[in-house]
Amino acid sequence: MKPAAFDYRAPRTLEEALGLLREHQDEAKVLAGGQSLVPAMNFRLARPAVLVDIARVPGLDRIDLDDPGSVTVGARVRHLDLEHNTIPGPLGVLLARTGRWVGHYPIRVRGTFGGSLAHADPAAEWCALACALDAEIHCRSANGARVVEACDFFEQMAFTTCLAPDELLMGVRLPSLGDSWGVGMAEFARRWGDFAIVLAIAAVERDGDSVARARIALGGVAGGPVRAAHAEAALSGRAATPESVAAAAAAAAEEVDPTGDIHGSADYRRDLVRTMVTRALNQALA
């Protein structure tokens, strides 16, 4: 369990980092917190020739609250920083609730928000959250910058994104959720800190006793995070009742097409979708 040989580079500027990625393309891999990449290298499942450590690149570890309509989370912000609810409003609550489910404490100390998105584990909490909130993923290469919608960023194949080999994920812009929003998060894993078997993220905008808009994303049920569009439709514009929640949960279970693995069959996962969506919505509507 030792990695294959690789070169280690530690650029001190963004330009230098992007230059290395342009130079090495597919041969290079970006190292941020290393909580997934390094084990994968030790198993020799990942064999980058060049490791580009962005730890010294300035500016990537900020949480930007300047824009009243959004919050931008830098790629290198650690999981733990989001768990500690430094962001106001329902968005901060959702980030904090979700953050607690990311790995174990030591992983949250070192692992990064951007790293999790770029790694794109199908059961990763942040990927589902970005997808639920239609986050904007800010990418940059030596040739310029672009912005990708979260749901387009993740390919429906595990560990695959639209990030080009020479692109660096710079940060993620999340919408500030106003006070009319309620948020919920439910996850089922075998042990605390394990990757989810199924997780559900819900953000619900209330309009009196009704639901104006519902955003629901799921993890662990496909190659990447998915929006539960039918479940959202089943709830949006309806009264917030146990029946409408049950209908949405049933719709979510109906619309997913999970595959099974040793921790749960496809049927079990589909069954869990209903329970997790129910729990996330109940939390969001509470």
Binding site: F43, H104, R190, R191, W192, G193, D194, F195, D261, I262, H263
Partner: peptide
């Protein structure tokens, strides 16, 4: 199929 501690699950103090 359980060739690492991602899949072979000893309980921790939490459990």
């Amino acid at each position: 199929l359980t060739a690492s501690l991602m899949d072979f699950l000893p309980p921790t103090a939490c459990e």
